[in-house]
Protein backbone atom coordinates (compact mmCIF):
# COMPACT_ATOMS: atom_id res chain seq x y z
CA UNK A 1 0.00 0.00 0.00
CA UNK A 2 1.11 3.55 -0.53
CA UNK A 3 -0.15 6.92 0.63
CA UNK A 4 -0.24 10.07 -1.43
CA UNK A 5 -0.67 13.59 -0.13
CA UNK A 6 -1.44 16.48 -2.41
CA UNK A 7 -2.28 20.15 -2.06
CA UNK A 8 -4.89 22.20 -3.92
CA UNK A 9 -6.49 25.59 -4.03
CA UNK A 10 -10.26 25.46 -3.59
CA UNK A 11 -11.83 25.12 -7.03
CA UNK A 12 -14.16 22.94 -9.01
CA UNK A 13 -11.24 20.72 -10.06
CA UNK A 14 -11.26 19.18 -6.57
CA UNK A 15 -14.74 17.80 -7.13
CA UNK A 16 -13.72 16.60 -10.58
CA UNK A 17 -10.68 14.93 -9.03
CA UNK A 18 -12.77 13.19 -6.37
CA UNK A 19 -15.23 11.88 -8.94
CA UNK A 20 -12.32 10.68 -11.07
CA UNK A 21 -11.05 8.69 -8.06
CA UNK A 22 -14.43 7.04 -7.67
CA UNK A 23 -14.42 6.06 -11.34
CA UNK A 24 -11.00 4.44 -10.89
CA UNK A 25 -12.06 2.18 -8.02
CA UNK A 26 -10.52 4.23 -5.26
CA UNK A 27 -12.94 3.97 -2.42
CA UNK A 28 -14.16 7.09 -0.65
CA UNK A 29 -13.05 5.45 2.60
CA UNK A 30 -9.44 5.77 1.45
CA UNK A 31 -9.61 9.46 0.66
CA UNK A 32 -9.66 12.30 3.17
CA UNK A 33 -9.72 16.05 2.70
CA UNK A 34 -8.20 18.48 5.17
CA UNK A 35 -8.99 22.16 5.02
CA UNK A 36 -6.01 24.34 5.80
CA UNK A 37 -7.37 27.69 6.92
CA UNK A 38 -4.94 30.55 6.97
CA UNK A 39 -3.83 31.09 10.59
CA UNK A 40 -4.78 34.77 10.37
CA UNK A 41 -8.39 34.14 9.39
CA UNK A 42 -8.77 31.69 12.27
CA UNK A 43 -7.70 34.48 14.59
CA UNK A 44 -10.05 37.10 13.19
CA UNK A 45 -13.00 34.73 13.54
CA UNK A 46 -12.97 35.46 17.24
CA UNK A 47 -13.76 39.11 16.77
CA UNK A 48 -17.05 38.51 15.12
CA UNK A 49 -19.03 41.49 13.86
CA UNK A 50 -16.49 44.27 14.03
CA UNK A 51 -13.77 42.74 11.85
CA UNK A 52 -13.86 43.20 8.13
CA UNK A 53 -13.03 40.12 6.11
CA UNK A 54 -13.56 41.86 2.76
CA UNK A 55 -10.04 43.08 2.36
CA UNK A 56 -9.95 42.53 -1.37
CA UNK A 57 -12.81 44.97 -1.78
CA UNK A 58 -11.26 47.68 0.37
CA UNK A 59 -8.50 48.00 -2.16
CA UNK A 60 -10.74 49.73 -4.67
CA UNK A 61 -13.39 51.31 -2.45
CA UNK A 62 -12.09 54.86 -2.31
CA UNK A 63 -10.83 54.80 -5.90
CA UNK A 64 -14.32 54.24 -7.29
CA UNK A 65 -15.81 56.85 -4.95
CA UNK A 66 -13.32 59.55 -5.96
CA UNK A 67 -13.54 58.65 -9.63
CA UNK A 68 -17.31 59.30 -9.58
CA UNK A 69 -17.02 62.64 -7.77
CA UNK A 70 -14.17 63.85 -9.96
CA UNK A 71 -15.95 62.61 -13.08
CA UNK A 72 -19.08 64.64 -12.34
CA UNK A 73 -17.18 67.82 -11.44
CA UNK A 74 -14.67 67.39 -14.27
CA UNK A 75 -17.34 66.85 -16.92
CA UNK A 76 -19.26 69.90 -15.68
CA UNK A 77 -16.26 72.18 -15.75
CA UNK A 78 -15.28 70.67 -19.09
CA UNK A 79 -18.31 72.31 -20.73
CA UNK A 80 -16.50 75.64 -20.76
CA UNK A 81 -12.97 74.27 -21.22
CA UNK A 82 -11.21 73.82 -24.50
CA UNK A 83 -11.12 70.04 -24.67
CA UNK A 84 -14.80 69.59 -23.82
CA UNK A 85 -16.66 67.64 -21.12
CA UNK A 86 -15.85 64.09 -22.26
CA UNK A 87 -12.08 64.39 -22.21
CA UNK A 88 -12.12 66.39 -18.99
CA UNK A 89 -14.59 63.97 -17.45
CA UNK A 90 -12.49 60.93 -18.29
CA UNK A 91 -9.23 62.59 -17.29
CA UNK A 92 -10.54 63.78 -13.94
CA UNK A 93 -12.13 60.37 -13.30
CA UNK A 94 -8.78 58.67 -13.80
CA UNK A 95 -7.14 61.30 -11.61
CA UNK A 96 -9.78 60.75 -8.95
CA UNK A 97 -9.37 56.99 -9.08
CA UNK A 98 -5.61 57.24 -8.61
CA UNK A 99 -6.05 59.73 -5.78
CA UNK A 100 -8.55 57.50 -3.97
CA UNK A 101 -6.34 54.48 -4.52
CA UNK A 102 -3.32 56.31 -3.08
CA UNK A 103 -5.27 57.53 -0.05
CA UNK A 104 -6.35 53.95 0.62
CA UNK A 105 -2.78 52.79 0.16
CA UNK A 106 -1.28 55.36 2.51
CA UNK A 107 -3.91 55.71 5.22
CA UNK A 108 -5.83 52.47 5.46
CA UNK A 109 -2.98 50.13 4.47
CA UNK A 110 -5.27 47.25 3.66
CA UNK A 111 -3.19 45.95 0.83
CA UNK A 112 -1.74 42.94 2.55
CA UNK A 113 -2.60 39.86 0.60
CA UNK A 114 -5.74 38.10 1.75
CA UNK A 115 -4.79 34.86 3.49
CA UNK A 116 -5.72 31.94 1.28
CA UNK A 117 -7.27 28.62 2.16
CA UNK A 118 -5.71 25.41 0.86
CA UNK A 119 -7.02 21.87 0.69
CA UNK A 120 -4.89 18.90 1.53
CA UNK A 121 -6.02 15.53 0.22
CA UNK A 122 -4.61 12.24 1.37
CA UNK A 123 -5.19 9.06 -0.62
CA UNK A 124 -4.46 5.52 0.43
CA UNK A 125 -4.20 3.04 -2.44
CA UNK A 126 -2.62 -0.19 -3.69
CA UNK A 127 0.84 -0.05 -5.27
CA UNK A 128 -0.70 -0.84 -8.65
CA UNK A 129 -3.02 2.14 -8.49
CA UNK A 130 -0.30 4.61 -7.60
CA UNK A 131 0.48 5.63 -11.18
CA UNK A 132 -3.11 6.28 -12.19
CA UNK A 133 -3.68 8.29 -9.01
CA UNK A 134 -0.61 10.38 -9.76
CA UNK A 135 -1.86 10.99 -13.28
CA UNK A 136 -5.29 12.08 -12.04
CA UNK A 137 -3.73 14.45 -9.51
CA UNK A 138 -1.44 15.95 -12.14
CA UNK A 139 -4.40 16.56 -14.44
CA UNK A 140 -6.27 18.60 -11.81
CA UNK A 141 -4.00 21.55 -11.02
CA UNK A 142 -2.37 20.22 -7.87
CA UNK A 143 0.08 22.58 -6.21
CA UNK A 144 2.16 19.76 -4.79
CA UNK A 145 2.30 16.01 -4.33
CA UNK A 146 4.21 13.59 -2.17
CA UNK A 147 4.18 9.80 -1.99
CA UNK A 148 4.67 8.02 1.32
CA UNK A 149 5.74 4.42 0.84
CA UNK A 150 4.82 2.04 3.60
Amino acid sequence: MSSLICLFKPSLSIELLLSEFKKNQIDQNNVACFILDAPLSQLTNEISSSSNPNEEMSMADLGFVFATIFGVVGASIGFKMELGPIIWGIASSIGGFILGFLIDLIFTKKFKKKPETYILISIHCHKGQENIVKKIIAAHQALGLTVIES
Binding site: Q28, A32, C33
Partner: peptide, 29 residues
Protein backbone atom coordinates in the same frame (compact mmCIF):
# COMPACT_ATOMS: atom_id res chain seq x y z
CA UNK B 1 -17.39 43.73 -5.42
CA UNK B 2 -20.08 41.21 -6.29
CA UNK B 3 -17.66 38.94 -8.15
CA UNK B 4 -15.41 38.93 -5.09
CA UNK B 5 -18.43 38.07 -2.95
CA UNK B 6 -19.63 35.24 -5.17
CA UNK B 7 -16.09 33.81 -5.40
CA UNK B 8 -15.98 33.74 -1.63
CA UNK B 9 -19.39 32.08 -1.55
CA UNK B 10 -18.17 29.43 -3.99
CA UNK B 11 -15.20 28.69 -1.75
CA UNK B 12 -17.30 28.54 1.40
CA UNK B 13 -19.76 26.13 -0.18
CA UNK B 14 -16.98 23.87 -1.48
CA UNK B 15 -15.23 23.81 1.88
CA UNK B 16 -18.47 23.01 3.70
CA UNK B 17 -19.09 20.14 1.29
CA UNK B 18 -15.58 18.72 1.67
CA UNK B 19 -15.73 19.07 5.43
CA UNK B 20 -18.92 17.04 5.68
CA UNK B 21 -18.57 14.54 2.87
CA UNK B 22 -14.84 13.93 2.58
CA UNK B 23 -13.42 14.52 6.04
CA UNK B 24 -11.08 12.10 7.77
CA UNK B 25 -13.94 11.07 10.05
CA UNK B 26 -15.82 9.68 7.04
CA UNK B 27 -12.85 7.64 5.81
CA UNK B 28 -11.03 4.60 7.18
CA UNK B 29 -7.78 6.48 7.44
Amino acid sequence: AKTVESNRLFEKELLSYLKFEWSIAKSDL
